[in-house]
Design a protein around this nucleic acid. Sequence first.
DNA 1: TTATGATTGTTCAATTTTTCACTTACTTAA
DNA 2: TTAAGTAAGTGAAAAATTGAACAATCATAA
Lengths: 237, 237
Amino acid sequence: MTVKIQKAEKISELTTSRLSVYLRCLGELAAEGQKSVSSEDLARRFHLNSAQIRKDLAYFGEFGVRGVGYYTESLRDHLIKILGLDEEHRVGIIGAGRLGAALADYYGFARSNFHVAALFDTDPNKIGKSIGETKITVYDLNTLPQVVKKEKIDVAVIAVPAAFAQPVLEAVVQAGIKAVLNFAPTPLNTSANIKIKTVDLTISLEGLAFFLAKPAEQQRNNKKAANTAKTVSKEKE
Amino acid sequence: MTVKIQKAEKISELTTSRLSVYLRCLGELAAEGQKSVSSEDLARRFHLNSAQIRKDLAYFGEFGVRGVGYYTESLRDHLIKILGLDEEHRVGIIGAGRLGAALADYYGFARSNFHVAALFDTDPNKIGKSIGETKITVYDLNTLPQVVKKEKIDVAVIAVPAAFAQPVLEAVVQAGIKAVLNFAPTPLNTSANIKIKTVDLTISLEGLAFFLAKPAEQQRNNKKAANTAKTVSKEKE
DNA sequence: TTATGATTGTTCAATTTTTCACTTACTTAA
DNA sequence: TTAAGTAAGTGAAAAATTGAACAATCATAA
């Protein structure tokens, strides 16, 4: 009755980001003492389709019990394993400016089992100092390969101005790091097999501006907008 | 020869976020003095398909010139108009904690023509004070409706702990705000016609963890993973 | 022990998004 | 003025994602 399926299918990023969302929710439910939860319950919480949730989970195995739902604790443990959060990741933050400093203190890293091990900068005034509440050392960016090795860093956070992001990325990849969280608002080029997640506030912001700019009529028909106005004016036919 | 099409089709968020990306690039190209750019050029920059770029733009009109490409300045102006960045938006940040304070100083708002007009909090020690380099006043959250009206705030940023996000959202909506940037890592329920963009670092982070957790073999076949291992073990057949 | 109800895992259909490939239109050089 | 070359715009195909529907399976109560 134990079914363990290890599918080597491509899992889409849409799926994995939903897994993160489920995981967070399961943590809350477990804390509340809720023993089990159905896909329908979860779907209502997130305004998702219940079939989608079941399918997302089914990629990785059969975690549910028909007629019952999913046991919160158990599913939570599975998701932690699936997302690789059972193993600690060690983070190096490149750029000890305001953003880098803020991130060094960001508690969310620890919650996902990420440990910020080092900061890097090129500014001689910063190198050697400690930053933030947790007193993380700022190293010379030139020593990146050595520190990465010594501190077993496997995740880099790029928190430098856009103009420096590409060369920094190259140094990071050169140092053997395969996963990068990028805050610089610029497209980054890299050889395959490096995973880059870019966090770009501007895009979210401008999405809001677009929404507000739309004529009120269109906003109402949020989904399934009718084909109302289609004004075409052409000279020189 | 002037073609002005106002299609009332549903524009997907995938499209609008790409528009933001194009816009940023056009700004750089214009600054470099580049007069025109082809969809192929842009595609190469972003690792996108050129047809997709042409189609994204074609939703809103015919901005290009066949045989030439797109005139950078002109397309840039069009995108600014399309995204609604030609009109200033006024932002109220709810939560004057560390994140709220950091956002109050974030320069990216101004670049997209957003002006941070006010902070809000419930902490008596903060209310009435000014925060950040730009000295933005912290108001009592209870006075939200009045300040929103007086300051003509049309965008709210939710930077409060997850537990307070839902009631804050309701207050924000009550005050007549239709666009919300949410930093609280929690699903938010709202009536239709309110646009909420949630920024969630944890999801990006855990996406990296998932990537790192995958067996090396799978990482190599990033796209189009072959159906390699599919181990099924079952007791009680 | 069997019937009933609930909820998963999964197949198949619908929808959305991306890509291809072709037509149209503009530029430049002969 | 015409031919050749280039690149936008677009309809149709392909791929990816989502959603509906249902058989399979488990728990519970008669």
